[in-house]
Structures are given as C-alpha cells and as structure tokens.
C-alpha cells in the first residue's frame, strides 16, 4: 500500500496573489514514493473473528446412550417424565488447540469396543492410552483452559443435580411424510365436495405474479432422522459410580442411540467477545 499522505500537497493559488507565474509542473514519479507494508486488517469472516463471536461453553460435555423413560417423583410428590442417559466409559481421546487447528475442542469417546474398530479410531484411542471406542465425538470449548488431558474418564456426576443441560441426538426417522404430519398443516375439508385430497397442502402461493412456487415452500418429504437438540433440560439425578444420568423430559432419538450431553448453551454459553465486553464495563 502506498502512503499517499506522504506526497507533497499540491500548491493552491491563493486569492491574494494577483500575479500568475508559470512554473514547471511537479508531478512526482510513482517510483519516487516510498512504500510500506501495513498489517492486513483481520476480516470479520475469518476463523479467528468467527471463533470470538461464537457462543461457546467453558468445558466439554459428555457422551451417553439414551435408555428408557421413567416416572420420577420429586420430594413434594410431583410426578415427572424423565429419561435415563447411560454414561459408559466416556473418556477423553484428544485435544485440539487454537494454535494448531484454529479452534479449541475436546475429542471424547464412549463405549469400549474391542473388535472391528476402524484403524483411525483405534490409533486415536491408542495414543490417548484408552481402549478403542464405539462412538467418538468432538466438543468445542471456548479457550484452552477448558481442555482435559487425554485418558481421563468423565463420569455422570460431571453434571450437578438441578443444572440445565442440552442433549443432542439424531431424531427418529419418519420416512416420506405428508404435509400434515411434517409441517402441521390442517389439510382440506372432509366433505363439501373435497375429493381424494383431504390431507394435501392446498395453495402453493400467489398466482401469475410471481408465477412460480417460491423456494423453501413447505411440502411433503423426508421427515426426521436429523440432528436435534433438546435444550435446557433439568438434571434430576447424576450417579457417577453407576454411570446413570436422569434428565427431566424427553430427548430426541430411539432407545439405545448415542447422544451428546452438554451444559445448556443458552444458560452457560458465552462468546469471547461478550467476556471482553463485560470485562471493559
């Protein structure tokens, strides 16, 4: 970048000077101007800035398996629906640091699996000093302070009773579902001349203008089988020794499916920018 402000200012003929004198035009050669490199500005859509903006948790979560749903009685005698999450051999496999990988995260594995493990998984587990795992997943952490040494086992009492958690899992697949089931449309009339199309969507949008169906129109299609997060669930019980976590309410997916459990993002999550902003106050 050329520092243009270092050029001599053009002479401006002041109104007081009445006499006009012609002199040699002074146009500096581009080569005569000294150039210098200024540091390139950090773009907002860079990895570093994006990481700063991201609402993240201070520590990783846990990996678990969804088990049955049960009735839970509180001290007062209230009856609640609760879900059992089994935390079985959940161990830290590796860490990713911002210096090396551009972001900070913890790699966790759950369920010991001795046979038929993919070589890549086996090598990761070996370097961590733990037995091969059936399921591995990554948790992003705000700073390097949240990293945990590989080989450490995390138990269910990692979470406190009464705190809020998020549970992420793949929801049950419903196959090709109609518009009523998939999007909660009301369908058409049962009578009054409606034929064959009792469960259809009805209008697809405006007429000649725009003359097409707008993108994103809700229609029939594949339903379920996607990543779903149940947010702000209360922890009712956490038994580290037995590896049982009991959570209030429902969580996505069928029984026996792998789930990711972490502190509630909306309750405990904070971005680095927010922390900086709070510190300035």
């Amino acid at each position: 970048m050329f520092a243009l402000w270092s050029l001599p200012l053009p002479r401006v003929a002041t109104s007081s000077s009445k006499s006009f004198s012609r002199s040699v035009a002074r146009i500096p050669s581009i080569h005569s101007v000294t150039s210098m490199r200024t540091p390139s500005p950090i773009l907002n859509h860079s990895v570093v800035k994006a990481n700063e903006r991201k609402q993240l948790l201070g520590r990783p979560g846990l990996l678990g398996i969804k088990r049955d749903m049960i009735s839970w009685y509180t001290e007062k005698g209230e009856q609640l629906a609760a879900t059992i999450i089994e935390i079985d051999a959940c161990e830290v496999l590796a860490n990713k640091t911002s210096e090396e990988h551009g972001y900070t995260s913890v790699l966790l594995g759950q369920l010991d699996k001795t046979k038929n493990v993919v070589p890549t998984v086996r090598s990761i587990c070996k370097s961590a000093g733990v037995s091969p795992k059936a399921n591995i997943a990554e948790f992003r952490v705000r700073t390097d302070e949240g990293l945990i040494q590989p080989g450490v086992e995390l138990t269910a009492d990692y979470f406190a009773v009464g705190q809020l958690i998020d549970v992420q899992a793949t929801s049950k697949g419903k196959g090709f579902a109609g518009v009523m089931k998939r999007h909660g449309y009301s369908g058409l009339n049962a009578s009054h001349g409606v034929s064959v199309s009792h469960r259809s969507a009805g209008s697809m949008g405006p007429s000649q203008d725009p003359g097409r169906v707008l993108p994103g129109k809700k229609m029939a299609g594949r339903m379920g089988g996607t990543k779903v997060t149940a947010q702000n669930l209360e922890v009712l019980s956490a038994d580290g020794e037995a590896g049982i976590l009991v959570v209030k309410g429902q969580i996505p997916g069928p029984k026996g499916s792998y789930v990711k459990v972490s502190d509630a993002k909306k309750e405990y999550g904070k971005s680095l920018l927010r922390i900086k902003h709070d510190a300035c106050r």
């Binding site: 088990r67 049960i70 059992i84 086996r122 037995s131 037995a242």
Partner: peptide
C-alpha cells in the same frame, strides 16, 4: 492387535434401567 484394557463394567454389567 494390541489394545488397552477396557474399563471395568459398571453395575456388574446390570442394565442401567433395572439398576436405577
């Protein structure tokens, strides 16, 4: 293949639901 020993089974291998 040489692998590390798996962790001891919790609840003596009992189902989590039954144990709870």
């Amino acid at each position: 293949l040489t692998i590390y020993k798996p962790l001891p089974k919790k609840r003596n291998g009992m189902s989590a639901t039954k144990y709870l």
